[in-house]
Design a protein around this nucleic acid. Structure first.
Lengths: 145, 145
DNA sequence: ATAATAAAGGACAAAAATATCTTTTATTAT
DNA sequence: ATAATAAAAGATATTTTTGTCCTTTATTAT
C-alpha cells in the first residue's frame, strides 16, 4: 500500500505540473500534462474533470484551450486535492478500520497514529499549491516520472 | 484511502485478538476470531494461512485445533505483519509514486514524507505483538468492532 | 457559417482487491 | 479403523480501482 491512491498521485502530480506550467499564464492540454507526469491520458482527463467540478483546477474548451490554475486554486492547500480524491481517510478514521475507535475507546494503535495523521494533515494543509510551485520553480525538486 | 489495506486491518486485528486469547495457551478457531474482530470468516482464513506460511502465526488442524501465537511470534514487531500483507510501500517508496524520487532527486513532498514514513516504521518496528498484548490485557485499549 | 480544436460526459473494459464456495489434508477422539 | 473436527488449498464470484473508447459540447479561427 502506498500513502495515496494512484488516482491521487496522478492528481497531485498534475496539479504541480499545472502550477509550474501555468505560471506564465498559459493553458496546458491534457496530452501535455499526461506526457509530463507519465500518466494515462484519458484517465487523467477524468481526474481533472472531477477536480474542475470542485473548482480546484480551471479549464477552457476549444483551440488554445486546456487546463490552468487561477489565483484561487494556487492559494488552496494541497490537502484539498487529497480530500477531493481520496477522502479524509488519511486524516481521520481508525488505522485498524474500527468504527467505534475514538479518544475514549481507542484501538491499540489509536494515540500513536493520531499523532501521525495530524502531522500529515498539517503538512498538507499548511502549504498551498502555489507555495509548492515556488519551490518547483527554484528547481530544487523534481516532478519527472 | 486508509493507511492500511482492509486485508492488513483484518490481519492486525486478528493477530491482536490471537495474542490476547492465546495468552492462556489455548487455540482459537477461525470462526471465533472472525466473529471477535468482525471480519468475513473465509477471507480471514486466507489471510491467516498466508501469515502462517510466513511463520507469523501458528496453527493446528483437527479437534482442539486452531490458531495461536508462539513465543517467537509474540516477540515479532508489528511491522512484520504490515510488511507481509501490504509490503513496504508505507515505509519506503515515493508519496507521489515516482520511481526516480530519491534523496538526490526528491519529489516536492519527499523530505516531509520521509519523516512521516520513518515515524510509522519506527512505531511499528519498535513495539512487539506481545507488548501490544500487554496493553490490551491491561484493558486500556479496545479491539471490538 | 464552417471546420478545427479541446474538454466534458457517458459507456465500457481490464485489473486488482475483497469475499465466498468446495474439496482436501491432518489431527483427535471414539 | 472410523467419524468428527478444523485448517489448507484451490476455484470461483463480487466489488472497487484503474484505464479506455466514443460521442457531445463549447470555443476559436478561418
Amino acid at each position: 500500500m502506498a500513502i495515496f491512491s494512484k488516482t491521487c498521485e496522478y492528481a497531485i502530480r498534475a496539479v504541480f505540473f499545472l502550477a509550474h506550467r501555468s505560471a506564465q499564464g498559459g493553458r496546458v492540454g491534457i496530452k501535455e500534462i499526461a506526457a509530463g507526469i507519465g500518466s494515462p491520458e484519458l484517465y487523467l482527463a477524468k481526474i481533472l474533470q472531477e477536480l474542475g467540478r470542485r473548482g480546484l483546477v480551471s479549464s477552457a474548451k476549444g483551440p488554445n484551450g486546456g487546463f490552468y490554475l487561477d489565483a484561487a486554486s494556487l492559494s488552496r492547500p494541497l490537502s484539498d486535492i487529497v480530500e477531493a480524491v481520496d477522502g479524509d481517510g488519511i486524516f481521520r478514521g481508525c488505522a485498524l478500520g474500527l468504527k467505534q475507535c475514538s479518544e475514549t475507546n481507542p484501538c491499540p494503535l489509536h494515540s500513536q497514529f493520531k499523532a501521525i495523521r495530524d502531522q500529515i494533515h498539517h503538512l498538507l494543509h499548511r502549504t498551498t499549491i502555489g507555495e509548492f510551485n515556488e519551490e518547483l520553480v527554484q528547481g530544487l525538486l523534481s516532478l519527472k516520472k
